[in-house]
Amino acid sequence: MTDAVSPRGLDAGGHIAREGSLARVTPDFRPVVAAARERIPGLFGGRLHSAYVNGSIPRGAARVGRSDVDLLIALREEPTEADRAAGRALIRSLDEEFPQIDGGGALLFSRSRLLSDLERHDLGFFVACLCTPLLGEDLAARLPRYRPDTLLARETNGDLALFLPRWRERIASADDSEVALRPLVRFMSRRLVRTAFTLVMPRWNGWTSDLHEMADAFGAYYPPRAGQARTAARLGYEPQGDRAVLTSYVDDFGPWLADEYARVHGVKAPRPEDA
Rank of each mutant, 00 (worst) to 15 (best):
M1H: 14
A4R: 13
R8D: 15
R8I: 11
G9S: 06
L10Q: 03
D11A: 08
A12R: 15
A12W: 05
G13P: 01
G14V: 08
R18F: 01
R18C: 02
G20R: 01
S21L: 01
S21Y: 00
A23R: 11
A23L: 13
R24W: 10
R24T: 03
V25D: 09
P27C: 03
D28P: 10
P31F: 01
A35C: 13
R37Y: 02
R39F: 07
I40K: 00
L43M: 03
G45A: 10
G46Y: 11
G46I: 04
R47Y: 02
S50K: 00
A51T: 02
A51Y: 01
A51G: 04
Y52H: 02
V53R: 00
N54H: 15
G55I: 01
G55P: 04
P58M: 00
R63L: 14
R63N: 04
D70W: 00
L75S: 00
R76S: 13
E77Y: 09
P79F: 12
D83P: 02
D83S: 02
R84M: 14
A85N: 06
R88T: 10
R88H: 07
A89Q: 14
R92M: 13
D95G: 13
L108P: 09
F109A: 12
S110Y: 06
S110Q: 04
R111S: 06
S112G: 13
R113V: 06
D117W: 10
D117Y: 09
H121Y: 14
H121S: 08
D122M: 13
D122W: 14
D122Y: 14
L123Q: 10
A128E: 09
C131N: 03
C131Q: 01
P133W: 00
E137C: 09
E137P: 05
L139C: 05
L139Y: 01
A140W: 01
L143D: 07
L143P: 11
R145W: 05
R147D: 06
L152G: 07
L164K: 05
L164N: 03
E169V: 05
I171E: 07
A172F: 11
A172H: 12
A174L: 07
A174K: 05
S177D: 06
A180H: 03
A180W: 08
R182M: 07
P183G: 00
V185D: 03
V185G: 05
R186D: 07
M188E: 12
S189H: 03
S189P: 02
R190D: 12
L192W: 08
T195V: 05
M201Y: 07
M201L: 08
P202T: 01
W204R: 08
G206T: 09
D216P: 02
P223Y: 05
G227M: 12
A229C: 03
T231S: 15
T231K: 14
A232R: 04
R234Q: 13
R234E: 15
L235M: 13
L235G: 09
G236M: 08
E238R: 15
R243F: 12
A244W: 11
Y249L: 09
Y249S: 04
V250D: 09
G254I: 08
G254C: 10
P255I: 02
W256R: 03
A258Y: 03
A258Q: 12
D259Y: 06
A262G: 08
R263D: 12
V264Y: 12
K268R: 15
A269M: 12
A269K: 14
E273K: 13
E273C: 10
D274Q: 15
D274R: 15
